[in-house]
Simulated scan of single mutants.
Amino acid sequence: MRIGILAKAAGVSVPTIRYYESIGLLTPPARQGGQRIYASEDVKALSLIRHCRDLDFSLDETRDILASVQRRLPCSDTKSFAEQHLRSIRKRIAELRALEATMASLVSGCETTCCGSTAPDCVILQPGQVNCG
C-alpha cells in the first residue's frame, strides 16, 4: 500500500510517517517505481506507536515498546515499561498540584494586594512572594 493509504489506515498523517521513519521509529519500506510500498505490518506498527503516544509515552519509550513487541518479549517487559511510566505520571501530577497551589496563592495575593496597580507591581510577577513547595 502507498503512504497515503497507510496514513489513513493507521490514523496518522503522511508527514508523521515520514518523521517516524527519519528518527528510526518506523523502518522505511522498499520502494517500487520510486514510491514507498507498505505492508499490513506497518499499519500495526503505526497503530501501536499512535497508542503509545496517546498514553504519553516518550518517543524513546515508544521505540523500546515497539522493539519488545517485534521481538515478542514477555508481557512482563511491557508491564515494566507501564509501571515506570505510571511512576513518572504520578510524579508529574504531584508537581502540578504543587504548582496549582502556588498559582492559587498568587492569584489570591493579587486579588488582595494589587487591585488598581500596574502589572510590574503585581504580586504574581514578584519573585519570592510565595513558597513554591
Rank of each mutant, 00 (worst) to 15 (best):
I49C: 02
G34K: 10
R18H: 01
A7W: 02
S68W: 02
S108C: 15
D60N: 11
H85V: 08
A39T: 08
A9D: 06
L86V: 10
E111Y: 05
S13I: 05
A104R: 15
S108L: 12
I89F: 04
D56I: 03
S40M: 08
N131H: 11
L86I: 14
P74K: 06
L55F: 09
C122W: 03
G109E: 13
R50H: 13
A119H: 10
L59A: 04
R97I: 13
S58D: 03
P29W: 03
V123P: 04
Y19S: 00
A94Y: 00
Q84M: 08
C115Q: 15
Q126W: 05
V69P: 03
Q126D: 07
C115H: 12
G11S: 08
R50T: 06
S108Q: 14
L99G: 03
R31E: 11
L59P: 03
S80W: 00
Y38L: 01
K44F: 04
A39N: 03
F81W: 12
R50Y: 05
Q126S: 14
D56K: 15
R2V: 06
I65T: 03
V130R: 10
R71I: 02
R36N: 11
A119Q: 15
I124M: 14
D56E: 15
R71Q: 06
Y20H: 00
S68T: 13
L96S: 11
S76E: 10
E21G: 00
D60H: 09
A119G: 01
R97M: 13
I93N: 09
I3G: 08
H85G: 07
C122M: 11
D64A: 14
G109L: 13
G133D: 14
C110V: 08
T62H: 01
L99N: 10
S13G: 12
T78I: 15
A98K: 13
T113S: 13
C75D: 01
G4S: 09
K8R: 13
G11P: 04
A45R: 10
D56Y: 08
M1T: 02
P127Q: 08
D121L: 14
G133K: 11
L73E: 11
L25G: 00
L59C: 04
I17M: 05
T102G: 11
A30M: 09
I23A: 02
Y20F: 06
A101M: 15
E95H: 09
R36K: 10
I89S: 05
R87N: 06
S13L: 07
R63L: 02
S105P: 02
V14K: 07
E95P: 06
A39I: 09
E83Y: 13
L6D: 00
R2G: 07
R63W: 03
T16D: 01
A101D: 15
Y20V: 00
I89H: 04
L26A: 00
G128K: 06
E21H: 07
A67T: 07
A10S: 15
P120I: 11
T16W: 01
